[in-house]
Design a protein around this nucleic acid. Structure first.
Length: 575
DNA sequence: GCCGTTTTCGGCCCGACTGTTTTCAGTCG
């Protein structure tokens, strides 16, 4: 069984949880969590780094001890230190930590006093009124535990950003109508453009006598108010989404926005810089002794610690501070840089509009070209195209191109990569296309070795242009299939082909860290909508968010090229 | 457990809200 970075991160997080319950040194606990975060954000497999003889202690937050534990886990699949902890603290106690209001101290009391180990036992004890007599517990705590377990709110749920947006925008608009309110910004992972969000963090600047807190908890989608003070409140919306509101004064807006945008790891790094300069940074400003020296804008905060403004999408502690110090921050791509879309479906397969309608919609979306890339015959369920039907489509495209102005249709296909790595249509028809997008739609459960060589074999075809949704993941639904993406990126460079960043909200595949890797390796990314209808081009915005998180600039993205340039790039792929 | 042009010890980011207290610990972000 290969050990992946996520497996190691999970072990470190578990150790942190259990150590916390044991009341270990909090900084030791933090060290494990930091390491888990570093590992999740690596973008490369630790197993490969070890194999290549790289020094793991050069990674931030990984020292001698944790490097040894990583090697132990890679070798044996588990850590002795965790096994030892399990003998002292039952693993199931971790589940209790997920209950809001229960932290390590209370979980420890529950275990020691009442031998509670599971959620079921906790619920029973709470219902029988056994908790309220424990030290540090009371009636309210007991009641909330019963409610939380009853509402199944104990397991963490994340929302697609695309979904959260539909709740965030009306709420922001509502808050903006309140008297005395100035700025309303959704901060947090939402502002950093993450593909999913756990909650919404909304930051507001308002006059002191504003009624914003009252009005916020009275919003008609709010079903529960968890807490409400003068500057901070937490509520749940009807769909289960948690929303935190923070109110600050105008002079603190920048520092508060920075603070609540995160990420946590980024903030810690920036705080350290402040400390090194003898400054204190918190959500109210940057302070020298007691005097505020910055904080009204984010730029002023960064400037105070000697940095240029860092775009929110980069704030993940993945090298952005160092890049900023070296004046090497990327000039991130924007939606306006996109000139075309290279992955679009029509009603010939599973889309719901004609080629002409899709072309008009693309033009309306400000694009100069689009590639029609319907499915190939293997996908019978969507009535995939065989050579004959594809040929008809090509004739139709020639016909349309002779009539259309300011938009050009490219001839393409989303061809299935079969289990043996062959493409689902013969070279004879593929050779007539402007581009060939290859995609895996079947046999997701192959071993990593087989899945990877399947794709590499497909990329050997001289007609292969772009690998669609490279990992096959569907967020909150299906994990990525086992595939060695760094190896694929390497092969794409050798063979002169490209990887897709698919903009469908549940895909957003390639992920950010692999975009960054592709960029470093000199492999261009194609940001495509995978549109199935005329309003599908709106989704490109989500792809741009992800691309920005992956440090991509205009020059790193294939479809930022002009039509003339792209024809040249694709032609060179065609050997 | 990590880290270091204030280095190998002694720090480690910081504040709000709640509930259980009676001045504050625990939790959360």
């Amino acid at each position: 069984m290969p050990v992946h970075n996520e497996d190691i991160a999970v072990i470190f997080d578990e150790m942190a949880d259990l150590l916390e319950i044991e009341a270990a040194n909090p900084f030791r606990v933090r060290a494990y969590r930091n390491a888990a975060r570093t590992i999740r954000g690596l973008g490369r497999e630790l197993s490969e780094m070890v194999e290549a003889g790289e020094d793991l202690t050069r990674l931030p937050g990984i020292g001698k001890d944790l490097a040894a534990k990583i090697k132990e886990i890679l070798g044996t699949g588990h850590a002795k230190a965790l096994d030892k902890l399990h003998k002292e603290v039952p693993a199931s106690l971790e589940d209790l930590l997920k209950i809001p209001g229960l932290g390590p101290k209370r979980v420890k009391v529950l275990y020691q006093e009442l031998h509670i180990k599971t959620l079921k036992q906790l619920e029973n004890a709470a219902r029988r009124g056994k908790l309220s007599v424990l030290p540090g517990f009371g009636l309210k705590t007991e009641q909330r535990i019963v409610e939380t377990i009853g509402a199944h709110r104990s397991q963490e749920k994340r929302y697609l950003r695309h979904v959260a947006e539909q709740y965030a925008e009306p709420l922001v608009a509502y808050l903006q109508t309140i008297k005395g309110v100035n700025d309303v910004v959704v901060a947090g992972s939402y502002r950093r453009g993450k593909e999913t969000v756990g909650d919404l963090d909304i930051l507001v600047t308002a006059k002191a006598q504003s009624s914003v807190m009252q009005k916020f908890v009275a919003y008609d989608e709010v079903v529960e108010t968890v807490s409400k003070g003068t500057t901070r409140a937490t509520v749940f919306l009807r769909n289960g989404l948690q929303v935190d509101l923070r109110v600050v004064e105008q002079q603190s807006f920048g520092s508060a926005l920075h603070y609540f945008t995160g990420s946590k790891a980024h903030n810690i790094q920036v705080r350290r810089l402040a400390q090194q300069r003898g400054l204190k940074l918190n959500e109210y400003g940057v302070f020298k002794a007691k005097k505020s020296i910055a904080g009204s804008t984010e730029a002023s905060v960064y400037k105070a610690v000697g940095l240029p403004f860092i775009p929110p999408e980069l704030r993940e502690a993945r090298g952005e501070i160092e890049a900023a110090q070296a004046k090497k921050l990327p000039n991130l791509i924007t939606r306006a840089d996109l000139q075309g879309d290279l992955h679009v479906h029509t009603n010939a397969t599973d889309g719901n509009a004609s080629i002409a309608e899709m072309a008009q919609a693309a033009k309306h979306a400000g694009l100069k070209y689009l590639a029609i890339t319907d499915h190939s015959k293997r996908l019978t369920i969507v009535h995939g195209l065989d050579s004959k039907r594809l040929q008809q489509q090509l004739d139709e495209i020639d016909n349309l191109n002779s009539q259309l102005t300011n938009i050009t249709i490219l001839k393409g296909i989303e061809v299935d990569i079969l289990e043996d790595g062959k493409l689902d249509l013969p070279d004879k028809i593929l050779s007539q296309l402007d581009l060939v997008i290859g995609a895996v739609h079947t046999k997701f459960h192959l071993s990593q070795q087989k899945q990877t060589s399947r794709i590499l074999h497909a990329m050997d075809s001289k007609y292969f242009s772009i690998l669609a949704h490279p990992s096959g993941r569907l967020l909150e639904e299906r994990p990525p299939y086992e595939v060695d993406i760094p190896r694929i990126i390497e092969a794409a460079r050798e063979r002169g082909c490209y990887l897709e960043l698919n903009s469908q909200p549940q895909r957003l595949d390639l992920i950010d860290s692999y975009c960054q890797l592709a960029k470093e390796e000199g492999v261009m990314i194609s940001i495509n909508s995978d549109s199935h209808s005329t309003n599908g081009f709106d989704l490109l915005e989500g792809g741009i968010n992800q691309a920005r998180r992956g440090w991509l600039e205009k020059r790193d993205v294939l479809n930022c090229c002009s039509l003339r340039e792209i024809r040249k790039s694709l032609k060179s792929t065609m050997g």
